[in-house]
Amino acid sequence: MVKLKSVFKAYNQKKVIEDVSLEIEKGTITSFIGPNGAGKSTLVSMISRLISKDGGAITIDGQDIMHTKNNEMAKKISILKQTNAVNLKLTIRELVSFGRFPYSQGKLTKVDEAKIDEAIDYMELRDMQDRYLDELSGGQRQRAHIAMVIAQDTEYILLDEPLNNLDMRHSVQIMKTLRNLVNEMGKTILLVIHDINFASCYSDHIVALKDGKIVKQGRTCDVIDRCVLKDIYDMDIDIKEIDGRKICDYF
């Protein structure tokens, strides 16, 4: 379980995250939604230790994230950042191999190789695994980075806008993969996502942020609601139910 208690973050006196408290249960997909600049990436980065917080507490399974050994944390929680600019001469397979670093410390074992193969197959990258990252399309690169996170094989997975650059087929496929990871392997996934229809169809819980505060959090069906969405986005959004799923029409 991930627990946030009164988390606070400011950049040059400007409050970016204010008093956010949150509990995320194991074995669920939680989506963070909200307008640009709401503080979603900041929050996710704090949970994954990439940036420091200015107040409050974050614990994962009861352990404070800042007071646990780095290597132990890296086996428990992983993150895909919103932007991934690697300017090294790396192939897809080499990038994915880095995901095993917390376990192998650079010396890959048979088990590591198997996990890497599995992650590459999951993202359908097998036939281009030896191509260099700088020779790929944006979407292919994004899939390579997701494969690296999958290879890291952590209980908790944080993804900041994983559908960036992806076409429809791959978007759906990745969301299905995430669903499988949760249902079959008991992973816990937190993701930042802009497309509320993907959030609506694939997540168990939704946390809506605005101006660094939580506007609404709860089960998906409670958050995908006309009044709530109006509050978050200042837009009138029509919600239609199709085959028991709530689809937002905001065009």
């Binding site: 890296a74 086996k75 950042k81 690697v86 090294l88 670093f101 650079g106």
Partner: peptide
């Protein structure tokens, strides 16, 4: 020595992969 390759990925990736940065 073992951390160098990971550090080259950048600070955030290194932290994510458990390097005591």
């Amino acid at each position: 020595y073992k951390y160098l390759d990971v550090l080259a990925l950048g600070r955030e990736e290194a932290i994510n992969l458990g390097v005591p940065y």
